[in-house]
Each structure stands twice: as C-alpha cells, then as structure tokens.
Amino acid sequence: MAKKKTYIQALTEGLDIALGEDDKALIFGEDVGKNGGVFRTTVGLQDKYGEDRVFDTPLAESGIMGLAVGLAATGWRPIPEIQFGGFNFEPMDQICGQIARNHFRFGGKVKMPITIRTPFGGGTHTAEMHADNIENYFTSTPGLRVVTPSNPYDAKGLIIAAVESDDPVFFMENLKLYRSMKDEIPEEKYTVPLDKAKVVREGTDVTIVSYSWMLNESLRTAEKLAADGISAEVIDLISLSPIDTDTIFASVEKTHRVVIAQEAQKMAGVGATVASEIAENVILSLDAPIGRVAAPDSVYPFAQDELTWMPNGDDIEAKVREIVAF
C-alpha cells in the first residue's frame, strides 16, 4: 500500500528496512541514537534495533569514519552519518584516502561496504559549513560512489540499494527537500539503481540535466516552458559518480540542445564533467552551445545572502530560452 511520505520519512523507512534485512548493518554518528538524529532521520531506530546497532558517537567526524573503516574491514556494513555536509572536510582522509581506496590498494581483498549519509545544499538559512554543495570534492575521488535522490520515492529505494552495495557510497541528502515535498511511496522494500540516471520528463526541444533540489526547479521550469510551446526533457542524474552518460547522450541526440543545472559552484564539478562528456562524445548532435546554470565560483555566503547567490528556476528558464533561441 502506498502512503504519502516526506523525503525524511522515506529515508527512515529505507534505513529501517536495511537494518531489518542485514544484522551486520550499523548506524552511528552524532546524536543519531537516543535523539534520533538532528533531522530526525534515524528516529525510533535505536528503540527498535538496540544500542549496539544504532549508537551515538562523540562529535569527532574522523573518529566516526575511522570506526567505519575498521568495522567494514572486519565484516560489518556501517552507515555512519556526518551531520552536515561541510563537516565532511574533517574526515576527508578517512573517506578519500582510506575508504575509497582500500578495495583497490589491497587487491580487492578488503571490502568497504560503507554508506556515508550526509545532508547538503543551501536555502534553509543554515549558513556555510552546513549548507555547502560538497559533491565536487567527492566525485573526483575514484572508488567512491556518489548518489543523491531528488524525491522521497528515490530516497527510500536508493538508501536501501546503497546499504546493500559492497561499494562505499557517499549518500547526499538535500536539506531543502527533507520536508518540502511528499510522494506516495510503497511501504514494502524496493531499490533504485545506484548508477542509473532517469528521464523524469520527456521532451523534444531541449534536455535539462540536473539533480537534487535543482532537478525539482528544472521540472517546474519545464512545466512553465511548455505553456510557451518549448518541450523540455528532464534528466535526473541520481548518480553523480559514476555518471550515466548513455542516458544523457541518447537524450541529447534526440533534442540537440542541452542545459546542465546544478546548485554547486561552477568550476570543476558535476556539470563540468557532464558538459565535457557531451562535448567529447556527441558534440555533432548539438545545434547550440552547451548551456550551464551553477552558483558563482565564490564561497557559500552567510544566510541573508544565500537566495541571491544560489541559482534557481529563473536562471534555468533564462538559460533554456537562450539555448533554444540560438
């Protein structure tokens, strides 16, 4: 039976199923146990699975991630939470230097089935270190999967798939999506593939490639443009590393125009990679330059300025109109 659930509720359900299915799965982090998480994502799970499987740690991100490395190497399936995106700068060695590399460097003999959950993204007045779009640091780390759902349905299916995967997964949860939308989602278990993009709206004039909060802005923009006779196809990347280029290329070959929209800063990130893949592989299909929407290459601002700084649906609309008119 399907019920309307928020993104947070979908994640809680997914984590509940993951813990129920595999008694080696463990959740730990700052206030995730007794308190149920600062965003209530793990609420009720300690009561249900006990203090051994869902437990609180000191405010020590490197220590938390170090625990995950040792537990994973010895047969467990850790699901550490890093409370805010910007706090991931602390355990960077554990994530990029150890977790992402161990399977390769030890010749495939040491598995790292770790799901690192972390909120990210701007627009909720949490300010930098709490709101940053941090994906660009992690998508440039081989050995680490980076995924992010843009809606409650995908959130549940993707978190279950992440925990089941033997790869380390950096699982990014958008702060602004946490409670801003509801989806009807099945109560039972289902999974969403970790490495597939989805065409979430079909169109013929232009392709918009996006993810997370900006994917939702892209869908709203596509709706608005349809009224003016512009038919936009919208692709949700879901997996930021690796990137499902086949789905993107097929769409670009159909629409011949593309706009890539991300909330993160523009330089050297997900959008830059998508743009370069398109340029390298299907450039002759294009009838217009590749359009990009992204934040300025400056530091995430303090709360009162964040809406000015962040890109939004208006920016996507302007860029799509420009590319379509080219």
Partner: peptide, 13 residues
Amino acid sequence: GGAPPLATGAALT
C-alpha cells in the same frame, strides 16, 4: 596516525 581510527573500529567488531 592511520591505524588508531580503524583499529578502534575493529575493536568494536
């Protein structure tokens, strides 16, 4: 100082 964090995880195992 790479060993102490992960050895602590293994101790939990």
